[in-house]
């Protein structure tokens, strides 16, 4: 059926076709999720145990069951552009209770990986990347803490990359291998 358009944005919005068409589905999306999540995401039968277990569901519009459904149907756009994708605390309660033995949490992680490939990612995630790239730590040391450490008889900096900075280039090499830092910088600059 030809797409309709009334050329009146208000009407086009109000009367937009809400049906689900085959063209909305990308079977490859399901396959990619299966591979990345390493769980049988295609086997969901929509019982809702996941949402019922989810600490985020009662306080938001986030429905993990809905993402599972989108995964089964290959609804890539709808999955990756939904801001609720980032409300999973990865508590794995759904995974422990899923009667199909699926790990919905890992499906969410796989979708987030795929979203990042399309530059869809909350800023705070990228800031963590930058911190680790520069110091090896996602939560680096600070002066107040150094003073406290000294008082406890600990070295001012822990025996991690903070003390052994010679390990940082290796870490940067790993991150650069995946071009993560460059992408993070680029996406953050674009914001």
């Amino acid at each position: 059926m030809a797409a309709k358009s009334y050329n009146i944005s208000e009407l086009d919005n109000k009367l937009a076709d809400r049906r689900y068409h085959l063209a909305d589905s990308n079977p490859e999306f399901t396959q990619k999720i299966l591979k990345t999540s390493r769980t049988i995401a295609n086997m969901c039968y929509q019982c809702g145990t996941c949402t019922g277990s989810c600490p985020s569901a009662p306080r938001s519009s986030y429905r993990i069951r809905l993402f599972m459904r989108r995964c089964v149907l290959g609804l890539e756009n709808e999955s990756l552009t939904d801001p609720d994708l980032w409300l999973c605390t990865t508590c794995y309660s759904c995974t422990d209770r899923c009667p199909r033995d699926i790990a919905p949490t890992d499906v969410i992680m796989a979708m987030r990986n795929l979203a990042f490939k399309r530059d869809i990612i909350p800023k705070n995630f990228l800031q963590t990347v930058q911190l680790i790239y520069n110091s090896g730590h996602g939560v680096p040391n600070n002066d107040v803490n150094r003073a406290a450490r000294t008082k406890l008889g600990l070295p001012a900096d822990p025996p991690t990359t903070h003390t052994y900075a010679e390990f940082i280039p290796g870490i940067q090499k790993i991150i650069d291998h995946y071009e993560l830092k460059a992408n993070a910088d680029r996406i953050l600059k674009g914001d």
Partner: peptide, 23 residues
């Protein structure tokens, strides 16, 4: 229409809270 995720007991009344999704 939803499978029960978990059940919690009210220690006072011994009533039960059923958590699920109305899918």
């Amino acid at each position: 229409r939803g499978r029960v995720a978990n059940v919690l007991e009210d220690p006072e009344t011994k009533n039960l809270h059923i958590f699920a999704e109305d899918t």
